[in-house]
């Protein structure tokens, strides 16, 4: 019951989470750390109680749109966090958030949460690994961007960021939805306009996915042009952090890869490193044929690759 309710709330928040916050609705999810399905307050006492064996190296796992941290769970109950703990001694910290809020707002909230964490964590933190799945990767990028602007104390501790199925150059499906909605609105018919209004109820977070908008000012560049190529992204990957990009693909066929990617995110968007700044080594980008968007956050093959990256010093 608890997990089903959590998932229902996550879906609701992803769909209309910005409306829930605007109307001060009690169904809106605040950003929190979660352990075994329960929130952990970012206070010294609560963190000590929740993580009695806390290690100085942590991995922060950030889920995607309409998910909770259970998206990382494999059939045998393990997940990337538990595996990192067992193999590399990284303490997993799972973040749950309202994925309907603008990505910029969630990034700022994550930066604030990590700022509190480094001062309240039971032992001094020596290293932070950031792991974002799908939208979570964009939230991670928005957080590092916000942290760089505010010189947040946690940012120098980040050595590595892992992006799993993250639409760095936007999600075409959302861009198509934007165009369909605009076309319906332009038709002078009350029924089509009603459908367009319902479609426009989708959350700010969802709309941000279209062009991977990490900042509020990025929305100004939204257009209704149908583009075959994704736009250049105005926010490069932050220097000083080693970035690793993981993409899934339904098939090895180049056309399937190009058109459908992992069924949600095209491979070009998940691996769009050329538009994300110079200096990203191609060896830090890996495509997994046969892995869909739903499978990529809980795959042993993906974990093995991420572990290999994290073991390299």
């Amino acid at each position: 019951m608890g997990q089903k309710l959590d998932l229902a709330l996550a879906v609701l928040n992803g769909a209309v989470g910005d409306y829930l916050v605007r109307t001060d609705n009690g169904l809106a999810l605040p950003m929190d750390l979660y352990l075994h399905g329960e929130p952990v307050a970012p206070t010294a006492a609560a963190l000590s109680a929740a993580y009695p064996d806390a290690t100085a190296r942590v991995v922060v796992l950030v889920h995607g749109l309409m998910n909770t941290e259970t998206i990382f769970a494999m059939p045998d109950g393990r997940d990337y966090g538990a595996l990192f703990r067992a193999d590399l001694g990284l303490t997993p910290l799972y973040v749950r958030y309202n994925s309907g809020l603008p990505i910029a707002d969630n990034g700022a909230a994550l930066s604030a949460l990590l700022t509190t964490l480094v001062s309240e964590y039971p032992v001094p933190i020596e290293e932070i690994v950031l792991l974002g799945y799908s939208m979570g990767g964009l939230v991670v990028r928005a957080a590092t961007h916000a942290a760089a602007l505010s010189a947040a104390p946690w940012l120098p501790l980040v050595r590595r960021a892992l992006y799993v199925g993250t639409p760095h150059r936007g999600a075409p499906m959302e861009r198509v939805g934007r165009i369909v909605s605009a076309v319906l609105k332009a038709i002078p018919d009350p029924y089509t306009r009603l459908i367009a209004e319902v479609a426009d109820l989708r959350s700010d977070g969802l709309k941000d996915l279209g062009d991977a908008d990490l900042r509020h000012e990025d929305r100004a560049r939204r257009t209704l042009r149908v583009r075959l190529r994704d736009p250049q992204h105005p926010v490069p990957l932050l220097p000083g952090i080693t970035h690793h990009l993981v993409a899934g693909s339904l098939s090895e066929d180049r056309w399937v890869r190009a058109l459908f990617g992992d069924a949600v995110v095209p491979v070009s968007s998940a691996t769009g490193w050329r538009s994300l700044g110079e200096g990203l080594d191609p060896s830090r980008v890996r495509v997994f044929p046969g892995l869909s968007h739903a499978a990529i956050p809980r795959s042993m093959d993906v974990y093995a690759q991420m572990r290999e990256w994290c073991e390299a010093r």
Binding site: L9, L20, N25, G26, L27, A28
Partner: peptide, 23 residues
């Protein structure tokens, strides 16, 4: 959450009926 659910259902009926009335 229960109060939130009550408020959300009310919002849906309020906005939904207004939109259908307009159509």
């Amino acid at each position: 959450r229960l109060q939130g659910l009550r408020a959300l259902l009310q919002d849906v009926v309020e906005h939904g009926s207004t939109a259908v009335e307009r159509v």
